[in-house]
Amino acid sequence: MKLKLKRMILILFVLLLLPLLASCQREANKGAEDAAKKVEITDIKGRSVVLEKKPEKIVSLSPTNTEIVFALGAGKKLVGVTSFCDYPEEAKSVEVIGDFENPNIEMIKKVNPDVVLAGGYIQEDIIEALEGLDIPVISTEASDIDSIFDSIAMIGKLVGAEANAEEIINNMHKSIDNIKSKVGGKDRPKVFYLVWKDPIFTVGQGTFINEIIQIAGGRNIAEETQGWSKYSPEELIKQNPDILIASYHATDEGMRKEDFEKDDFFQKLECVKKGNIHIMSDDNIVARPGPRIVDAICEMAKVLHSDAF
Results as ranks from 00 to 15, higher is better:
Arg256Gln: 14
Ala36Lys: 14
Val111Arg: 10
Gln226Val: 14
Met1Pro: 13
Thr225Trp: 06
Thr140Gly: 04
Glu52Pro: 08
Ile44Ala: 12
Thr225His: 13
Arg292Glu: 01
Val294Gln: 00
Ile11Met: 09
Asp263Met: 02
Ile209Val: 09
Pro63Met: 00
Ile68His: 11
Ala163Met: 06
Ile245Ser: 07
Leu117Thr: 01
Lys302Asn: 12
Asp259Gly: 10
Lys186Glu: 03
Val183Gln: 01
Ala91His: 06
Ala32Thr: 14
Pro19Glu: 12
Ile221Cys: 09
Met154Gly: 08
Ala28Val: 11
Ala163Thr: 04
Gly254Ala: 07
Gly98Leu: 10
Ala163Tyr: 04
Asp264His: 09
Asn220Glu: 04
Ala163Ser: 09
Glu234Ile: 04
Ile127Ser: 05
His173Asp: 01
Ala74Pro: 11
Gln226Met: 13
Ser232Lys: 10
Asp146Tyr: 11
Ile148Gly: 01
Val195Ile: 11
Ala222Lys: 06
Lys109Arg: 14
Phe260Met: 00
Glu162Lys: 12
Ile215Leu: 04
Asn29Gly: 02
Glu95Thr: 11
Lys92Pro: 03
Ile155Trp: 10
Ile122Met: 13
Glu162Asn: 15
Asp264Thr: 09
Tyr121Lys: 15
Lys54Gln: 15
Gly290Trp: 00
Asp125Arg: 14
Glu162Phe: 14
Asp259Arg: 03
Lys45Val: 14
Asp86Lys: 14
Lys53Val: 07
Ala296Ser: 09
